[in-house]
Design a protein around this nucleic acid. Sequence first.
DNA 1: CGAGTTTGACCGGCGC
DNA 2: GCGCCGGTCAAACTCG
Length: 543
Amino acid sequence: MGQVREENQRLKSMLSQIVKAYQCLQHQFFELVQQEKKVEMGPSRSKLSLPCNQETKEEAELLSLTLGLSSSRLKTDGERINISSMRRESTKNGNSDSKQELSLDSCNGKFMSCDHESSKDPKEGELSRTWPSRKLLRTLKSDGEQVLEQTRLKKARVCVRVRSDAPTMEDGCQWRKYGQKISKANPCPRAYYRCTVLPSCPVRKQVQRCIEDMSVLITTYEGNHNHPLPISAPVMASTTSAATSIIQSSSSTSQQQQQQQQHGLRFSASCGPASTTSTGGMYGLDYTGDRNPKLPRIYFSSSSQISTCNSHPTITLDLTSSPDFSDLDGYRYSPCFPSLLTAPSTYLSFCSPPPSSPSSSHLDTTTHKPSSGIGPRVLNHGMPPQHQFYQPHLWPVTKSQASHPQSLPDKSGAEATKAISLNLSFQSVLAAAMTSFASGRETDCLGDKGKEGGFGRDLKLGDDPATPIKLLQPSPQADGTARVSSNYMDKPTAFSSREGPKSSIWFPHSSVALSTSKKSARASMSPAETKDHLIKFLGNSDM
DNA sequence: CGAGTTTGACCGGCGC
DNA sequence: GCGCCGGTCAAACTCG
C-alpha cells in the first residue's frame, strides 16, 4: 500500500508538471496566434463576429482556417483553397492542428479509412484480410484492452431507414450477401451483406424491412471500410465512422458529462449495456429552434429501448418521414415521428423531437437565424452531375411557393424524402456533422482538451447570439456560382444555380471518413465547426 | 465456370 | 447448465 501511495504521489506530481507545461505552452500558443492575427487581420476578418472571450477567439480563428470561412482564405475568383497554405497554418498553430493535416490528407484523395481493425495491428490486418473466423478472432482476445476496444468499436452501427421498394439501398458500395435470417421480432427476413470492394473490408450491413411499415427499408452498417470508396459511397462510410466515434466517446466520464450538461447538452451515460429502457438522452444539435424553422434539427438520441442494441450502439438515420413539404422547405419535418419511439440507441432524425421525449435537450441556437430561408433545391448543390439522382425539377419550389408552402402537393413530400435519402450532399453534411460531433465529444473525453475546444466552446459560440448570425453570412463568389467541394470531388465544382443569390459552400467533410481511429477522430471538426458547417451550408443555400 | 445467392448448420453471447 | 437467438459459415444451388 505504501508503495502504491508513493507511486500515486509520484504520478500526481508528474501530472501537475505536465499540466503546468501544457498551460505554459498554451499561453505561448495563444500569444503567437494573437500576434499572427494582428498581422493578418484584414477587413474580411470582421465578417466573423468573434466572441469576446479570448479562448473562443482562438477557436474562431481555427474555424476559419478549417472551414474556409475567412474570405482571406477563399479566393474570390473561385480558386480552390490552397491546401498547402492551410497546412502551413496548421503547422503554425501547434499540435492540435495536426488534426487538420490529417483531414486534409484525406482531402487529397488519400481516402483511406483509419479502421481500427486494420490500422491498429498488422497482425490483425492480416487476419482480417482473409475474413478471419471467429475462432481466430477469439485467439486474439488475449490481447486484452486493445481487443476490447476493437470489439466495442466493431459494434458501432449506423442504421439507415429509407422508404424504398428496392431490396437494398444503393449506397455505392459492392456487397455480397452471406446470410439471411428471420429474426424473432421481425418476420421479414434479415439479409446479411459484406463489402466486397476489398476482401479484407470488415464492413457489413444488414437489410431488413420494417415490421411496422413494410415500405421502409432498414439498412444497418457496421464497421469501417479499409479501402478507397467508390465515388458515391463515402456518405455511409462517414456515418459509420461517426457512429464509431460516438461509441468511442460514450466512455466519457461523469465529470465530463456534468460539464456538458452544464453547457446545456445532455448525454446518456453510455450506449452500453446498462440501459434497456428509454433514457431519453439526446445528442442534440438543434440548429432550428422554434423560432427558427429554417434549419434542420438533428438529434442524436441515445435512448435505448431495444436491449439487444445495447451491445450494438446504433445511430439511426431516419429518412423515412413523409414530411410536409412546407416544412421541408425549411427542413423542418412533421413534428411527430413514431418510429423514434422504437429507435434504438442513437437516433438521427430530421424532424422535431417527439413530444414524448421530454428529456431531450439540444444545443439551443434558437436565436441564430439564417440570413434567409432555404429551399429544397439546395439538396442538389454539392452533387456532381453523376450523383444527381433527383434532378432539380423534382424540387419545384420557388420563392413564392416557399412562402405559400401549402400549395405544394403531398406527393412532393415523398419525393423530397426520397431525394433526401438519395442526396449525397445533404447526407454528407449530416455525416460530417455526426462525425465531427462525435469526435468533438471524443476530444472532450480526451482530457484537458475538452476544456479548451470541446463542447464548452461550442456552446459558448452557440450561446452567444451575436456570433452565428455573422457566421451565417454567405460568402459570395465573385463569379456568382455556388462552389462546392466534398470528399468525392477532388476539385470544387461550380454549379450554376437556376435562380437566386449565389453562395459559397465549402465542405471540408473529407475528414469524416477518418474518424474511426482516435487519431483521425481528433482530425474531425469540433462541435463548433460542425455547427458552423451546417449553419453555413444551410445559410448559404438560400436560393 | 465463376460469381453471387440460398439455406441449414453451427457458434457464441446472454438471460434464466 | 440450458435454451434461445442473432450472426456467421459453407455447401449446394442458381444465374449469366
